[in-house]
């Protein structure tokens, strides 16, 4: 490679970096075209820059809400293999009115298929947010909530994981690069059977990455802290007392004391460390829970809490 080529390539890379920083769409294409137009890149070099840029550009952020929706559905289906759904129509109906009435106040009120909530027949203290807005809460977690406000705090935390797409971020980049390469190579709208089989394998692996994070490895401490902070903002916008997240975490802490290493305790930072971070930002004055909210929570959830 002679000096001219080196210069051409460095300018090409520089253009891409500048365009990337600028946040423009389709930057690889533009950069390569500029390179060609100015004569610093040959046609083949421009093609190579385009392809390189395409690979760099495609990440979890390029998954459309539709793709996120299908990943989330499969993640929930996988979670149901381990955690049995709780078939309690009245309780699940209440959970959905509460959850969806919170979601409209979130920073991401719209997802492809909307937010949906479901109770799980498990005494483990846990909750899962599948991408796209399928949120699952165990009976064990429900036991950490004494009223609607505290349950709202749990749901708000999970909604905020969906909002920040924390689940999608768990997918390994190699799977996405492979998946995007498969669809880019196929020009027809419907994939051929071979491509579909390959894509389905990448899909299953991606779903596996998310399930592993939700149930075993957990999100990062930063992601949990971000979800807590966003949950406090959400509770405030929706009119619920922010302090409910503190009382809920305190109760969770008591319940988890004898469950170290299981469920939530395994995948989340300790409740006390979360309280320490949150407390300075939350008003301490706590009025008694609203009587109507207390009553409807008790009516809907009593049959669930009574169950074993």
């Amino acid at each position: 490679m002679n000096a001219r080529h080196w210069l051409a390539l460095s300018i090409g890379v520089g253009l891409l970096a500048a365009l990337w920083f600028c946040g423009c769409e389709g930057m690889g294409e533009v950069g390569a075209e500029i390179g060609k137009a100015t004569g610093v890149l040959t046609d083949s070099e421009a093609e190579s820059v385009k392809r390189g840029a395409a690979a760099v550009e495609k990440s979890w952020q390029d998954l459309t809400p539709e793709q996120e929706y299908y990943i989330g559905r499969a993640v929930a289906a996988r979670v149901f293999e381990t955690y049995r759904p709780l078939d309690q129509p009245q309780a699940n109906a209440y959970l959905n009115v509460l959850g969806q009435s919170l979601a409209v106040f979130s920073e991401r009120p719209e997802t492809f298929g909307g937010y949906r909530f479901l109770l799980l027949d498990s005494d483990e203290v846990n909750a899962f947010a599948a991408p796209g807005g399928l949120i699952l809460v165990t009976r064990g977690m429900l036991r950490c909530c004494e009223n609607e406000d505290e349950l709202a705090a749990v749901l708000a935390h999970e909604i905020c994981h969906v909002q920040a797409k924390h689940g999608l971020r768990a997918i390994k980049q190699s799977r996405l690069t492979e998946a995007f390469t498969i669809v880019a190579a196929e020009s027809a709208k419907q994939l051929g059977s071979e491509e579909l089989a390959s894509l389905t394998r990448e899909f299953e692996s991606s779903v596996g990455d998310v399930v592993m994070t939700l149930t075993t490895s957990g999100y990062s401490r930063t992601q949990e802290r971000d979800a807590d902070a966003a949950a406090v903002r959400l509770l405030k916008r929706a009119g619920y007392p922010e302090a409910a997240i503190i009382t809920m975490l305190n109760r969770m802490n008591e319940r988890l004391a004898d469950a170290r290493g299981l469920g939530f305790a395994k995948t989340h930072p300790s409740a006390t460390s979360r309280i320490d971070v949150l407390k300075p930002a939350i008003p301490t004055a706590q009025a008694a829970p609203d009587a109507v909210r207390q009553q409807r929570f008790a009516t809907a959830m009593q049959p669930v809490l009574a169950g074993q």
Binding site: T64, Q67, R73, V183, E186, K189, L196, L199, F203
Partner: peptide
């Protein structure tokens, strides 16, 4: 657009 992890993949599963 519209290709990738979609209905076609779920239908296969």
């Amino acid at each position: 657009a519209g290709k990738g992890f979609n209905e076609q993949v779920e239908a296969k599963l």
